[in-house]
Design a protein around this nucleic acid. Structure first.
Length: 460
RNA sequence: GGCUCGGUGGCAGAGUGGUUAUGCAGCGGAUUGCAAAUCCGUCUACGCCGGUUCGAUUCCGACCCGAGCCUCCA
């Protein structure tokens, strides 16, 4: 059986994945700060780690997958203020929308979805512990982590404290002992949300929640911690500092980070304002097309987002669905998932492009083979591959007949036209037959004559 | 300025010390009333310069170019 190998950001190498406890895997992926819609870049880690979750579930008997919701953050405070709404209203609304959007991309629900505001107590006690052990200090109402107190600070992101100061872009605040010190707990004004703490009314710093929630739900260390590349520093470096200094232990055995989705060769980010929301894209493309596009490159490679990318993803899916349509997508197959080539490809650090190549090969086999055993094998490969990749969720006819642009043109009307054309063809009135076909094409319906009659699909 | 990653054929995108990635697009053919779909065949590759090697796209070094992080960010 193939063994799982994953690239560990910490070591910079692909490593054999071994869970801490036999057969049981713990995975934590950084989720959204819920103050507006998720963009397509936010969706990449969700889809990537969803693929990993699916693979892990085949290999291990118990997989616990946590994806947090950051529901207290200054950005949410600002968003609420702008809309004149409660913070809870904003965070609840966008939590819901986030769940809907990710579900539309066929991301399975995580095992747990911890919320920051449900773990304030744990965050306070974590901060307290860091103060007691000399890794944190109070200054001007803030509690700060002292980066110099940790020998290996910077080990994850591969940087040294001296190097970081060279750029001189770290926030220089005179209440910090070292410019790299970061906030664990900060004071809240009357108008800001806050919780009682040994340091007065305040709220947590950005990095604190993940450390506290991992501790609360998984204990000292987890097997996999994932997120986007941009989180390596400072977020994950600081999480690691907090957790290791407070509780000791490994904290995280395998760090995984996905590369970004680009837009016209530039980074897509909310601050640059060049984002496309998942919600908006879903009104133009099926979720499966978006998902397919997101995993068309290996997760550690940058992915440039474009209409061309989406059209390629659509034709890739068309290709597979077309092959599936020949033999139907229903029925049992006897090949264990762990023995499929798609599984093997994904076990190699989620090599989705190689998995795609396997899928294409299986589709080609279905298109041309006359050997029952071969066909069965290819069907199994395609269908189980679809399960692992989170693709091919529809039945082929639904897939090809969705999104017909024409208004008021229903399937039964199309069938009537197909029959009329068949009659025209039978009487060798090819002019009429072609006119019917052209008229349907103008309505976004493509006809395909096959040995068993004519089928239709939405056109380009 | 510091750190990290990458430069593959028209485009997208894997991989490898010596045999086809794969997909889209193109071209030729089969099939079709004509198409579409499918099948068969086929053309453009590994940034640049050195080094190691019998042999490098694949390892090493320099160079050029690009991206990311160093500040909220998936």
């Amino acid at each position: 059986m193939a063994e799982l190998r994953i690239y560990n950001t910490m070591s910079g190498e692909k490593e054999l994945f071994t869970p801490q406890r036999d057969g049981r895997v713990s995975m934590y992926v950084c989720g959204p700060t819920v103050y507006n819609y998720a963009h397509i870049g936010n969706a990449r880690p969700v889809v990537v780690f969803d693929c990993l979750y699916r693979v892990l579930n085949v290999r291990y008997s118990e997989v616990r997958y946590a994806r947090n919701i950051t529901d207290i953050d200054d950005k949410i405070i600002h968003a609420a203020k702008e809309r004149g709404a409660d913070i809870e209203t904003v965070s609840r609304e966008f939590t819901e929308k986030y769940r809907e959007d990710m579900a539309a991309l066929y991301a399975l629900a995580p095992t747990i979805e911890p919320k920051a505001t449900d773990h304030i107590e744990e965050m306070v006690s974590l901060t307290l512990r860091l103060v007691e052990t000399g890794h944190a200090y109070e200054s001007h109402g803030h509690v700060l982590f002292a980066v110099e107190s940790m020998q290996s600070y910077g080990a994850l992101s591969g940087r040294k404290l001296e190097d970081m100061l060279a750029g001189a872009r770290v926030e220089v605040a005179d209440y910090k002992r070292h410019a790299g010190d970061f906030v664990l707990w900060k004071p809240s004004s009357e108008s800001e949300p806050g919780w009682d703490s040994p340091w007065g009314k305040g709220r947590p710093g950005w990095h604190l929640e993940c450390s506290a929630m991992i501790r609360a739900h998984f204990g000292e260390s987890i097997d996999i911690h994932g997120g986007g590349r941009d989180l390596i520093f400072p977020h994950h470096e600081n999480e690691r500092a907090q957790s290791c200094c407070a509780y000791g232990g490994d904290f995280v055995r395998h760090w995984m980070h996905n590369a970004h989705v680009g837009m016209d060769g530039e980074k897509m980010s909310k601050s640059l304002g060049n984002t496309r929301t998942v919600r908006e894209l879903l009104s133009h493309y099926p979720g499966e097309v978006l998902r397919c596009a997101l995993i068309s490159a290996q997760y550690r490679s940058p992915l440039n987002f474009s209409e061309i990318l989406l059209e390629q993803a659509r034709s890739t899916l068309d290709n597979w669905y077309r092959a599936l349509r020949r033999y139907g997508s229903q029925g049992d197959f006897s090949i264990p998932i762990a023995e499929t080539a798609v599984y093997g490809a994904l076990m190699d650090d989620l090599n989705t492009p190689e998995a795609f190549a396997v899928m294409h090969a299986a589709a080609a086999t279905l298109n041309k083979s006359a050997d029952d055993a071969e066909i069965e094998r290819a069907r199994a490969e395609l269908l189980t591959g679809g399960e692992l990749l989170g693709l091919l969720n529809s039945n082929p006819d639904e897939w090809f007949q969705q999104d017909v642009k024409s208004e008021g043109l229903f399937a039964d009307q199309i069938e009537v036209q197909i029959e009329a054309r068949a009659a025209a063809k039978a009487s060798k009135d090819y002019q009429l037959a072609d006119d019917i076909r052209a008229a349907l094409e103008a309505e976004g319906v493509m006809l395909e004559d096959g040995p068993d009659g004519t089928t239709w699909r939405r056109g380009a």
